[in-house]
Write a protein that binds this DNA or RNA. Structure first.
Lengths: 209, 209, 209, 209
DNA sequence: CATGAATGAGGTTTCATTCAT
DNA sequence: TATGAATGAAACCTCATTCAT
């Protein structure tokens, strides 16, 4: 796996895909909870209601499970974002951005553990797999960038580097998960969204001369 | 260690401190390069030019080496920042902030690997040790907050939540290390600093009515 | 193990039991010969014709091997004694006791090494496991006590404290194993049995007024 | 040591002897409490208020400390017994034996821990050292045997094998230490002495025809 | 296709002993 | 003479992976 040319014992592509999805679903919880290195294959197999041998029919190495879990978890949200953002097309740019930020930050809040996990454990993947994960991240950034570009075109935003601006928006969202120890005591998600939105808008809405 | 009341076999506080510093210095490179879980005690000891037994005279467990490395690396920069920021006192707030950002981001750039490492591996520490590390982070945030508050008092900045704003500045800096895969291909540090400074200022400098 | 609720990786109770028996059998010789602390897990595994990992599937810690060996060895003999003593029911008390002593002392002689081993190493077990071992010892004492009590009832013995007397009989037998260095040079088992029997009887057969 | 031809760094025989006595005294408690294998040289040295290096000036190996402790502890009591038994010369044999038993059993009771320790750990000594320890045991047996022989000569005892009888007396005493778990719950030392004395006498006092 | 028993390399940690000071 | 820092062999134990069933 990971390289998508993993040696597998099965030839039924359909079965393989479905089993891998099952694995990604079931292994997520225990991996996220215990950490990659501290979770054994046995525990993963148990969590998947499989024998260890069976697990290895659909996965080439432990690392592959990690990849499946992260990819499955993140791509779900990427797709969700892309769909949601699509629907914002008929809103004014500022409104669209506000909605997008809210959606994204809420989504991050809902899957804090997974995000943090992906942040910490992606390093354990092979370079190719890492790249695949990072691409998911890129797609989110690009989705925001699209909104920003549209705003620029319509003259509502003034941004030197839209890619960077989009990036900052995404980062600020992820930080809600990664640095929750910092915020949680003094800030509610709702406040966080509001404050960050305010700051973001302040930095991209052109000021009168 | 970690709790700073580790069982040690030596009573010479001076020696312990110096050896631990040595360990923090020498272990950093290999730990950062290979990752905590993939580096064995034997490798760490070798990197420190010590026998394994000697290492364990100054450290209660492998985890302690991780703590030493992270704490040593980060605290060096925290102290550096605090000192540098002190000297910005006589500058106008905007200038002071610009300088501070430049200093901090440059510093992050210089110790990219360590920052990323700390980000990914702090989770392996005991809660108490984690807290100690996070406190270092807090001090940086507070140092920036101080600058922002001064700017607000002097009427040059207008910020709803200075803590959050300071936090965003720090995050953006750390992101240069954590997400270098994202930037490196298209942005030089100098550009990054300039662009981020621009966006940050835009979000905190009050606009004329 | 030891507590009989050891964490095991297998669920097949039958297999576990059979493997543990195998371990008890195979590990006995080397453990008895080299001593518990001086025998490594690797040696034990070799003696069992197993990989170390396999050994640990059926045992939670090295200590458990010790428990298995001692329990297996002793319980075999306890059962043997209880069965043999049962058959002495129709003999006159004096004859029954004589037979019992002979049987027990002979048995001790046959398993000298194990008895000595059990004596010396039981201290390494967890309290619960120690208790289990000591209970085996108690059963032997009780078996003898039953014979003594019967003799008292029938007026053939006169004993102030039957428990203590039974205890002495057992001790004298075990001493043949524990202190063989003392006896072996000057006494054959046969002589030892005869002399001890004589002294024991002298101390419990009432003398005519 | 042990072989009394240990390589030592000192030439001052007097100093060596005094240091070794010191070691035997100071190490006894911790060794008895924690067991030989579970006590480290460091702990022993600490207990002796010495550096580890210093300890090794007077001792050739860890085993030697064990030997010193056991020999020192036991010989103290052997000498005590021999002296006490000497003073019983003018008593009638029965009375003398009664006193001797009481003295010995009481002594065992006072040094239960050491006796048990010696019992369990002597096996860790070199054969020569084991022999030295066992000789101490022999001396006690011989002391009792002397009393028994005197009684036989004076016609008050009738014993087939005085050595064995003496041995049984000693064993019964040591059992108070070794099997305290068995007795302690139901028997006080005083009772134990009385009962054992009764049984011993019954087995050696000739009965009228 | 499914299973889990078996494996042994390799992990962390301890400790008896030496030797420079 | 006294010290204790340094050492590395060897201890116990885990676990990713294979393969016979």
């Amino acid at each position: 796996m990971q390289r998508d040319n993993i040696r597998t014992y099965s030839n039924d592509e359909r079965l393989i895909a479905s089993r891998r999805e099952h694995i990604a679903k079931c292994a997520a919880h225990i991996l996220v909870k215990k950490g990659y290195d501290r979770t054994s294959i046995r525990e993963i197999a148990d969590a998947c209601n499989m024998g260890m041998g069976t697990l290895y029919r659909y996965v080439g190495a432990k690392e592959d499970v990690l990849y499946l879990v992260i990819r499955d978890g993140l791509s779900k949200y990427v797709r969700f974002c892309e769909e949601v953002f699509e629907e914002l097309d008929n809103l004014r740019p500022v409104e669209a951005l506000k909605h997008a930020i809210r959606q994204y930050y809420t989504m991050v809040d809902n899957s804090q553990d997974l995000m943090l996990f992906a942040f910490q454990e992606t390093k354990n993947l092979l370079p190719e797999a890492q790249e695949a994960i990072l691409n998911l991240d890129r797609r989110i950034v690009e989705a925001f960038e699209k909104l920003l570009l549209k705003g620029c075109e319509e003259g509502e935003f003034k941004i030197t580097d839209t890619r960077l601006a989009a990036h900052n928006i995404v980062i600020a969202g992820q930080m809600w998960a990664v640095r929750r120890w910092f915020f949680k005591r003094q800030l509610k998600l709702e406040d966080y969204i509001e404050l960050q939105t305010e700051m973001i808008l302040a930095s991209i809405i052109p000021r009168p001369p």
